[in-house]
Design a protein around this nucleic acid. Structure first.
Lengths: 250, 250
DNA sequence: TCAAAAGTGTTTCGGATACACCCATGA
DNA sequence: TCATGGGTGTATCCGAAACACTTTTGA
């Protein structure tokens, strides 16, 4: 029993069921929608239960641990990343939210209130790791998500909504894109998150006018057509602009 | 022991300390910043502990109760209002957030994670009720708030920030103002929430252009100067506009 | 009668939108 | 050579911001 870190302190899965409440706060969980961007598509990382259904990666909060720290710890176990952008967006507190749950005597069979986070990760840096309850950990295109357990579909949709809402005043591009990217790639990111298409020329003009991008000498070669320039964010100016309340996004 | 409803099931304060965890979820609380608008000032409702310090009204979640329901129940006990606008805005989950707390053997002495809500109420309809722990319940001008226990000041500031952020796409005016109000009153509301002054003429033009206000025949008499018109919101159009994602506020 | 607040304009300006043209590349 | 995608530039429009004048009221 050492597949992931979350149950390190336990000797077996059964032990986890029995003694989990000595380590974790009861009735509280953290669920995360991990977003990545790959091949011009917004994606979300899901786990497959040994039962069969898919779910969002999640975990529990240790007795003396901050909720944010718990979320970071849980995500690190799933993605291998220590430094990812994480944002708490909602609490799901309906006592009936876990439809399929059987009221077992274990602490884990009780009612849980879930704190929802979304994470933005650089797709290529992620190494998906299933946890002890899961047989798979895979990326899904945002509009090809299968049925999920409990209210996880609702949680995911709310996360997406929050992301959409945050697009203009949070470092979304900075955290979803690789260091170097092209203008069209940046545009696709905005388009998939917003779910609408944007005029190519106006988008470029707008982005450049914000003075947060650095155009590199290189161009992205290998494409079938004219080679686009590569850009990277001017992280200092980017963060400064955000702090000043400037609307970045579209 | 029947000053408020929150401890109805208990026979005494001591009983509440002893058996509280049989009724409420452990480690979880709800704290509310209740906002009102009176005499052209944004105000917040605070409780005074029998110890002496002020705090935000709060409470706990029953075992089979939804978190939203708990927040409504708690607020009703403080304000007497059954129908108020309530929004969950953040979870405060730092294990060190309750500085002054002594680690007592009671459930209530343990570490608590607090779910923050803000409420918008019509000032005149509120009848402040202290709870069993409190000797007073009073309105404070938003920038004259005294020192608060734990991290309640931070919670209040975050609530205010959330309110500011929500101003454009949530029914803020509708819930803070009385049925009938004048255009200058509406403007003061926006100005105090945003913390900036707005051109009188542009504000009026803008508000009227959104087609969510009904001008009444009456005017507000008694003032020292020219009598302003009274308005009320066209609730149907207001809500429709919100649902369509129209930016209402300023 | 006058200061202060309220109602109703007009002018101006900038950012968003729409659209046209040229360039590079692989099929 | 040509279809496709990428880079750059210009005209237009609309809403926001700036600003002027009149009206009402109690002191």
């Amino acid at each position: 029993m050492r597949k992931s870190g979350s149950t390190e302190v336990f000797t077996s899965l059964d032990d986890f069921y029995q003694r989990g409440d000595q380590v974790y706060l009861p009735h509280l969980s953290v669920d995360c929608a991990i977003f990545g961007f790959h091949e011009n598509q917004l994606r979300v990382l899901l786990l497959k239960w040994k039962g069969g259904k898919w779910c969002l990666p999640g975990g529990f909060i240790k007795h003396k641990e901050s909720v944010d720290t718990a979320a970071h710890r849980i995500l690190q176990e799933r993605t291998g990343l220590t430094d990812l952008y994480l944002k708490q967006f909602y609490v799901f507190g309906d006592p009936k939210r876990e439809k399929e749950k059987k009221n077992s005597p274990h602490w884990i069979g009780k009612r849980f209130i879930s704190i929802g986070y979304y994470a933005l990760v650089e797709f290529s840096k992620v190494q998906p790791h299933p946890d002890v309850f899961s047989e798979a950990c895979e990326w899904f295109d945002i509009d090809e998500v299968p049925g999920l357990i409990y209210d996880h579909k609702a949680i995911m949709m709310k996360a997406l909504e929050a992301l959409r809402f945050d697009l203009n005043d949070h470092p979304v591009g900075l955290n979803l894109l690789p260091k170097k990217f092209t203008m069209p790639e940046l545009q696709r990111l905005y388009e998939t998150i917003l779910g609408e298409s944007i005029d190519r020329r106006n988008f470029q003009k707008h982005m450049l006018s914000m003075d947060i991008l650095i155009r590199l000498e290189e161009r992205k070669t290998g494409g079938a057509h004219k080679a686009p320039y590569l850009y990277q964010f001017d992280k200092r100016k980017y963060m400064l602009a955000l702090r000043q309340g400037l609307k970045l996004g579209w």
